[in-house]
Nucleic acid binder design. Structure first.
Lengths: 251, 251
DNA sequence: CGTTCTATTGACTCGATTCAAACTAAGTGG
DNA sequence: CCACTTAGTTTGAATCGAGTCAATAGAACG
């Protein structure tokens, strides 16, 4: 996994949903960034915080989560390199959820001031960043559908499908195999099911020959079946290119 | 329910999350709008559509929803006067969900062209509209928590709390009483529970003396208890003003 | 005034949770 | 490098929240 410069990650992500001009890429490469490393399950931001900088995932996985009833954790989104999980803090001062690592991760921080100075100068980048937050919202909508209307087996399959395409879009999931440092408990908190049941679901998927998952590496053995079990259609990801019926060609 | 001009609704909504200058209010009042009336359960936009205008709720309720497994409907958000449920269409060309009425409604349409011309001229309005879409996303996040971590009684209570505050914020829910043209089935599609179970939950809330609901009018009898049952905290709505522990003063 | 949609109630079933225990992998310190 | 500790995975049994099916009652509509 070549680390690359933080801004390379960001450019690649922004380009996965829309074209960027040479000028925009230059603007981004000029943004000041401070990179920091985190261990597993470390909080990066907490509910109620008032951030003065935005974070950008460079390596590893982050998640956003909220607590319900004081103790139950709901994971709201997963974030991969190139994502800016708190872009919203540019316009909403107080954070309404937590941001933490899942597994070790590297995160870059960009001061709000730098972004606020850059955006008015580039309509294309304003557009791109705004759209980034809108795609974020689109994923939440699908997450709502996932939790509200699908049973456990489909929920888990759906999330695995989403991760596959998102990782492929930034070049981190060749051949349908990728690192996934989540515990089964994490996945349960994302799907709204108990860790015990996650385990049963995963064994079901293994028995069907749909996936292989061992030592924090997952391999999708039967993409079509996983999509079908998970009732998955990729339109909501608003990725560029066609329908992504199969991403095999996206080597 | 005084109808008022469409732009009055919009200004009021935008001001419920942040201040607007005189100039901004003027810009908005100059936007071209075409108002149309709809009956109950009419589609305004469908998944896959490529809108060329944004819609603004003037009167009544809209909802956004997606289908899962081809037949199950998940309602993703409710929209009240002043909301612009497809603001995102400014930057995401293809709609990934449906927008329909719940009960009769009046909707104003604003051409994308007019908004695209206005926004670059006003940093405040770009900020305000962007923030509007971010608050939208914040409500989705809470919706995810609601579906993922709370049981049926709490889910329903939580949504009723949310509607109360949102309606109060635009002056449509004095004294904790307001019109709600949803069927129990609609509410079930929003909470991810069956219509039969919605009925049982409502009767439970009635028996506790928490609400009264009859003839499409709901009255919150015990706000504190409803909040407590629904595990409700209003921060995610990002409304202006303090903590909204009680909104009685917001006459 | 019948047609249709919505609300209500009861009985049965099922997916998922909880509790508990066993097992395995991973990490720490001596 | 092993012994100990801790975190994560796996399995089974009992229980429960919610769904489904079905039938009835009531409200709204033309």
């Amino acid at each position: 996994m070549a680390t690359g410069q933080p801004y390379t990650r960001l450019i690649r992500r922004l380009e996965s949903i829309g074209a960027l001009s040479e000028e925009s890429r230059h603007f981004i490469s000029q943004l000041p960034m401070t990179v920091r490393s985190y261990k597993t399950n470390q909080d990066i931001l907490r509910e109620g915080d008032v951030p003065t900088q935005c974070c950008l995932v460079v390596d590893g996985y982050l998640c956003r989560h909220k607590m319900a009833n004081g103790s139950k954790r709901q994971i709201i989104s997963f974030h991969i390199p190139g994502d800016m999980p708190d872009l919203q803090s540019l316009h909403l001062t107080r954070l309404d959820h937590n941001i933490s690592t899942l597994g070790p991760a590297a995160v870059a921080f960009i001061p709000h001031a730098a972004l606020r100075e850059m955006l008015p100068r580039s309509r294309e980048l304003t557009h791109a960043f705004w759209r980034e937050t809108l795609v974020d919202a689109a994923m939440f909508r699908e997450w709502v559908v996932n939790l509200g209307q699908r049973e456990a087996l489909a929920r888990v399959s759906h999330i695995l499908c989403e991760m596959t395409l998102r990782l492929q879009a930034i070049g981190l999931a060749r051949e349908f195999t990728f690192a996934l440092p989540w515990t089964q408990g994490d996945l349960g908190d994302a799907c709204g099911i108990s860790p015990v049941h996650v385990n049963r679901v995963i064994q079901n998927l293994r028995a069907r020959g749909a996936i292989e998952w061992h030592a924090k590496v997952i391999k999708i053995l039967n993409w079509e079946e996983l999509k079908s079990i998970g009732d998955f259609s990729p339109e909501y990801l608003h990725l560029r290119g066609e329908h992504h019926d199969t991403r095999i060609e996206a080597d």
